[in-house]
Simulated assay, not measured.
Amino acid sequence: MSASRKLRLGPLSRTESVKPTTMCPARLKADLDRYAALHGQAYGETVDAATLIPYMLEAIMVWDRGFKKGDPK
């Protein structure tokens, strides 16, 4: 993959964090690891899957029209 390829999840911002624990299928973990490798190539910063997961979840919530419509804000 070309390092110039744009991924939906762009460069990572720095934010305050909490550490939840979760389980996922091995196949999903392998995909997350592969995504992390591609993200590192695209943006020149090595990250692991655990670092990307909160950003991915946040992006899903931002992009999810059904969630936004149900948001009482």
Rank of each mutant, 00 (worst) to 15 (best):
S17N: 14
K19V: 14
K69R: 14
D64W: 03
K68W: 02
E16Q: 01
M56G: 08
M61H: 02
A42N: 05
R8T: 13
R65C: 11
K19C: 10
T51V: 15
T51P: 08
A37F: 01
R5K: 08
A42Y: 03
G66W: 01
S13M: 10
A42K: 01
E58V: 07
L9M: 08
W63D: 15
R8W: 07
S4K: 08
D31F: 05
E16Y: 02
T15S: 09
F67A: 15
F67L: 12
A3P: 10
R8M: 06
K69L: 14
C24I: 13
R34N: 05
D48H: 07
P54V: 00
K68A: 15
A26R: 08
K73D: 10
D33M: 00
Y43K: 00
P54W: 02
K19P: 07
D33A: 02
D71Q: 13
Y35E: 05
T51F: 02
Y43G: 06
L32W: 02
C24M: 13
M56F: 08
M1H: 00
S13E: 15
C24D: 12
Y55H: 14
A50T: 15
E58C: 09
A26D: 11
T22G: 04
L38F: 06
D31C: 07
L57G: 08
A42I: 05
M56A: 13
G70H: 05
G70K: 06
K68L: 09
D33W: 04
C24Q: 12
G66I: 05
K68E: 12
G66L: 06
V62P: 02
P72T: 11
K68D: 13
